[in-house]
Simulated scan of single mutants.
Amino acid sequence: MLPPQTLAFDADRGLSERHIRILDAAERVFARNGFHVATMHDVAAEAGMSPGNLYRYFSSKDAIIAGMAERDRSLIAADFAALDPAGGSLMDQLEALGRRHLVDEPREKAIIALQIWAEASRNPEMARMCAGIDSTVIEGLAAAVAGAKASGELPANLDDGRFLQAIFMMADGFFCRKAIEADFDAAAAADTLFAAMRALAQVMLLPSNGGPAS
């Protein structure tokens, strides 16, 4: 179990500069060395501080992972909250959001995500953190899809559940390929993913007469 307080900062004010520096350093170390091999001393050295100072901010590697997860969850939630029907096509905004997280983020993010997913299969606390991020993404996607349906941008009879599941699985696969393929062309793959998303939105419909769904 993680300690009750893993971060020494006020959530209402956000992360301090020192927390950001440590989390950024830890991401580089974990991606380079692997979560289990990396040590707190490695993270401290990467962050340019003493191990003793590091422990003032994070009590363990698990606490650092928790900090990474919460930072990512908060950023994702803020990005979804910024989607605005008055700002133009919600699908275009959703695609731009997706490209920021799938394409623009460094490959290290995808490598760490795979390590965390693997750990979540045997660590209940890691599984809980992953579920928290997943819930944030699903809620944001569901709200965006509902808004696009209300505006007529997506079919009113779109099968939201299946559509969101398909997007989620495609994004997970994207992260996996980005993590394991050093020469992965994220921009080209994103073109394929979002073209598929838009195509699915037109055919993944609820049955209109009691027959099977499309």
Rank of each mutant, 00 (worst) to 15 (best):
A120M: 08
A148V: 03
S135K: 07
D104G: 13
T136W: 02
E139G: 05
R99H: 14
E119M: 15
V137F: 07
G147L: 02
N123F: 02
L114V: 07
L97D: 04
R107Y: 05
K109V: 14
R107E: 10
D134G: 06
A146T: 12
N123Y: 02
M129K: 05
R128Y: 02
D134P: 00
I138K: 05
G98N: 11
V145A: 04
G98Y: 09
A148E: 03
L97N: 02
I133K: 09
L97R: 11
I138Q: 07
N123E: 04
L141G: 01
L102M: 12
Q115P: 00
V103N: 07
C130G: 06
E108V: 12
R128F: 05
I111C: 11
E139W: 00
A142H: 14
C130P: 00
V137I: 15
A143D: 14
L141M: 13
R122A: 05
L114K: 09
I111E: 14
Q115E: 13
R100C: 04
A144S: 14
L102T: 00
E105D: 15
Q115Y: 00
V103Q: 09
E108D: 15
M126C: 06
E125F: 06
C130H: 04
E139V: 07
M126F: 13
P124F: 07
I111G: 06
E105P: 04
P124L: 06
L97I: 04
D134A: 12
D134M: 09
E105W: 15
I111V: 15
L114N: 13
A142G: 11
I116V: 14
A120T: 12
L141T: 03
G132S: 05
E125M: 04
A148F: 03
A142I: 04
R99I: 13
V145M: 08
I133T: 11
D104E: 15
V103E: 08
H101Q: 09
E95L: 12
G147F: 02
A131D: 08
